[in-house]
């Protein structure tokens, strides 16, 4: 089954992203939203972990990145979606797992 994982915590204050990456299967997608978007900032350990996570796709919620002023600082290759795109990601996967 395919899973959409959502992570809404900064990687600097929470192990949510680590937990997610440790348990996400190949073919799944991780959507970073709210404070989770900081994980995609270029030059961070978390961005490196994301780049090295083979078989898992990543997306970031654009409005959350814009709100936090980091849209221009995102690591290359991460897909940016809006809330419409979030809804589409949910529809495209078998289930959603929120990493709270």
């Amino acid at each position: 089954m395919t899973t959409l994982h959502t992570v809404n915590k900064s990687p600097f204050s929470s192990s949510a992203l680590d937990n997610c990456l440790g348990l996400a299967k190949n073919g799944s997608t991780v959507l970073l939203l709210e404070d989770g978007v900081y994980a995609a900032t270029a030059g961070t350990k978390s961005a490196e972990a994301i780049a090295n996570a083979d078989g898992v796709s990543f997306a970031i919620l654009g409005p959350d990145a814009q709100a936090r002023g980091i849209e221009g600082k995102l690591a290359d290759g991460i897909k940016v979606v809006d809330y419409d795109g979030f809804v589409d990601l949910v529809a495209e996967h078998d289930k959603v797992h929120a990493w709270l």
Partner: peptide, 8 residues
Amino acid sequence: DHLVTFGA
């Protein structure tokens, strides 16, 4: 079909 959770 899907339960989507928002929380902390």
